[in-house]
């Protein structure tokens, strides 16, 4: 235990500085503006993540967001275990036919105001699976989407930058 403690103390805080926000973040709809306004400028956002059929690339990057380097918690953002607790729904991957119902119910159970984030190229329009018989399409073909963060997969910084820029833009 002492070894662990001394390691903790000598390492210090390793969290990297917050990413620079994109000043010209445009894709802000009425819904997200309203949500951010109701939720006190998005000071506390709870995320429920749904993997609608991705390669798990996005999930790796999301997991990385919780680690000591990216530390998404410092922005007041946390992951929760139930869609009923969530303010933000992040969806990754093209929506496969098998996951369509799960995605719809998760969205239905989220209390308003809610923000939907499509994470990665697959989630935006189906990506390389576009048109496949097993895929319904992008997330916006199933539920309304507020923020789209491109990349295959987007890096943790991309995700952070996308999210925070959208919130900042909605706040102004």
């Amino acid at each position: 235990m002492w070894k662990l403690l001394s390691k903790i103390i000598t390492t210090g805080t390793v969290t990297e500085p917050a990413p620079a926000l994109e000043a010209d973040f445009q894709i802000v709809g009425e819904n997200i503006r309203n949500a951010v306004h109701t939720l006190y400028g998005g000071r506390s956002l709870r995320i429920r993540h749904v993997d609608a059929g991705s390669t798990n690339g996005e999930e790796y990057e999301l997991t990385a967001l919780g680690n000591a380097y990216y530390d998404i918690e410092r922005f007041g953002i946390s992951f929760v275990a139930s869609p009923r607790h969530a303010d933000v729904l992040t969806v990754s991957g093209p929506v496969t036919r098998n996951m369509e119902h799960a995605l719809r119910t998760a969205y239905e159970m989220m209390p308003e105001p809610r923000i939907v984030v499509a994470l990665g190229d697959g989630a935006i329009d189906g990506g390389i699976w576009k048109g496949s018989y097993a895929v319904v399409g992008g997330v916006r073909d199933v539920i309304p989407v507020d923020i789209e963060i491109p990349g295959d997969p987007p890096s943790p910084f991309d995700v952070l930058r996308g999210l925070l820029s959208a919130i900042a833009a909605a706040r102004s």
């Binding site: 139930s82 799960a102 995605l103 119910t105 998760a106 209390p111 308003e112």
Partner: peptide
């Protein structure tokens, strides 16, 4: 509070 009735959360199953 506004209340909306839904099914029990079922993780899609």
């Amino acid at each position: 509070p506004r209340i909306r009735r839904t099914d029990t959360w079922d993780c899609g199953q």
